[in-house]
């Protein structure tokens, strides 16, 4: 597949931002494409992993944040495990995802940032994950209440979903972590 890469379509240096966030050296990539061959979602992606690296190297701007792989990536780390140069591409995707969130670029189909936010909010308040609340709020937020309605009664009945919020965690400790992490995010990575 040939992709035409428009240089600096939008001003901004995504490569630098990604390298700052991840400390991954993308210059050592020699385009062997092992990452793309092993990636379970590459076949549906506009640009597979190796091509995203190339686009970054060639000065891609914010248009790269629209690329589907950022939102379909499964964090399976196959790309990283198989890269002969130890390039942690899974971390690159995480960095692109958080840059997309910072710049307000949305997931066109699902809403992973919303899910992550709801999940972490629950952890911040209870110290542990609270699936029922997170799933209900996610479904409300994305208007997908109907999907999976058949599953929850069965899961609740089988005790595979807790009704009450979790208890027993050291909540003070977790709140301190969230507070400090938010402060550190502001400082240069």
């Amino acid at each position: 597949m040939t992709t035409r890469i428009a240089k600096q379509k939008t001003p901004g240096d995504l490569l630098k931002a990604v390298q700052e966030k991840t400390k991954v050296n993308l210059n050592v990539c020699y385009q062997c494409k092992k990452c793309s061959i092993g990636c379970p979602v590459a076949d549906q992606a506009e640009s597979p992993p190796s091509e995203i690296i190339r686009r970054l190297q060639l000065g891609a701007g914010d248009e790269l944040l629209q690329t589907g792989l950022i939102w379909t990536c499964l964090s399976c780390e196959t790309c990283y495990a198989r890269c002969p140069n130890q390039i942690n591409f899974a971390a690159v995707v995480d960095a692109l995802k958080s840059l997309a969130v910072e710049k307000g670029v949305a997931d066109p189909q699902g809403d992973a940032p919303l899910f992550n936010r709801l999940f972490l909010n629950a952890v911040e308040s209870y110290g542990r994950a609270y699936d029922l609340q997170v799933i209900a709020l996610y479904k409300l937020g994305t208007g997908s209440l109907k999907q999976d309605v058949d599953k929850f009664p069965a899961m609740l009945k089988k005790g595979k979903m807790a009704i009450l919020p979790p208890s027993g965690a050291d909540k003070g400790r977790i709140r301190r972590i969230f507070k400090k992490a938010a402060q550190n995010k502001g400082t240069k990575a």
Binding site: T22, N116, F119, L120, V123, G127, R128, D170
Partner: peptide
């Protein structure tokens, strides 16, 4: 007093 490990939501948000 164990707490959540952060799961995939945390690493996707902030390492």
């Amino acid at each position: 007093g164990w707490t959540c490990c952060g799961a995939s939501a945390a690493h996707q948000t902030d390492r």
